[in-house]
């Protein structure tokens, strides 16, 4: 019996760039990935995970993600997350989740002021999340980044609380490419069902593209989505 392909909704905002890559990568990992237009007010029936992709929604006007979070589909995403649904925000998607208040903190301009586009090495800080279950504790992943606003920050209290509650899932290993606090590359919310990360796992699912390490994150998400879907049936 072939395992069920869980339905993963990938939202296209005006200015999303990596929505098609995300759909391609998720489908390659055996998910039923579907694009959802930002102006929709509901997620497709049977959605078991949502991905907010990378790009420059609304031209990054004001702040990255600031405008996108008012898109009609975001009410449905917020409701889905509040009910425990799995939500993964990649790059601009991470910025949108922070602006929407689904994740703590904010992403500001890279300390170098330069756009950075290259592979980075990440270290996995937690494997007990729906996004990293296929990884090993402390495992190093090679995944590309491409952003000008990836410098994760918050006030001292917020950052201390993130560490205290172990909400940091991924950190840059060695060189910190954007100046982010405590080398943070990816965080989860307190309940662990919403994650944001600056690196692009959808660009690293095949050795031909440089690294297959991103597949570990997306396949973890698909595993968790499948389990939840099955639990509901």
């Amino acid at each position: 019996m072939t395992p069920e392909r869980p339905k993963v909704a990938v939202v296209t905002f005006l200015g999303s760039l990596d929505d098609h890559d995300a759909v391609w990568a998720l489908a390659a990992l055996d998910a039923d990935a579907q694009l959802v237009w930002h102006a929709e007010s509901e997620l497709p029936e049977g959605t078991s995970a949502v991905v907010l992709p990378g790009g420059f929604s609304y031209g990054d006007y004001l702040r990255g993600g600031a405008i996108a979070r008012f898109a009609p589909i975001m009410d449905a995403v917020i409701e889905f997350a509040a009910a425990g649904g799995l939500v993964l925000g990649i790059c601009n998607g991470f910025q949108i989740l922070c602006e929407a208040g689904l994740l703590p903190g904010v992403l500001i301009r890279n300390a170098s002021l330069s756009f950075v586009c290259r592979d980075v090495v990440l270290s996995v800080e937690r494997t007990d999340t729906p996004f990293t279950s296929r990884c090993q504790q402390g495992q190093q992943l090679r995944i590309p980044i491409k952003h000008g606003y990836g410098n994760f920050t918050g006030d001292d209290e917020l950052l201390a609380e993130l560490e205290r509650k172990s909400q940091v899932v991924l950190r840059y290993h060695g060189d910190n490419p954007n100046g982010s606090a405590f080398s943070i590359a990816g965080v989860v919310n307190e309940t662990g069902n919403v994650m944001g990360l600056m690196p692009h796992p959808e660009h690293a699912v095949d050795p031909l593209l440089g690294s297959p390490d991103g597949a570990l994150i997306l396949a973890s998400l698909i595993d968790a989505a499948r389990e939840r879907r099955t639990a509901l049936v």
Partner: peptide, 13 residues
Amino acid sequence: PKAGILDPQGEAV
């Protein structure tokens, strides 16, 4: 930008 928050743009200028 709030006091204490890094302002890379201001720093460059």
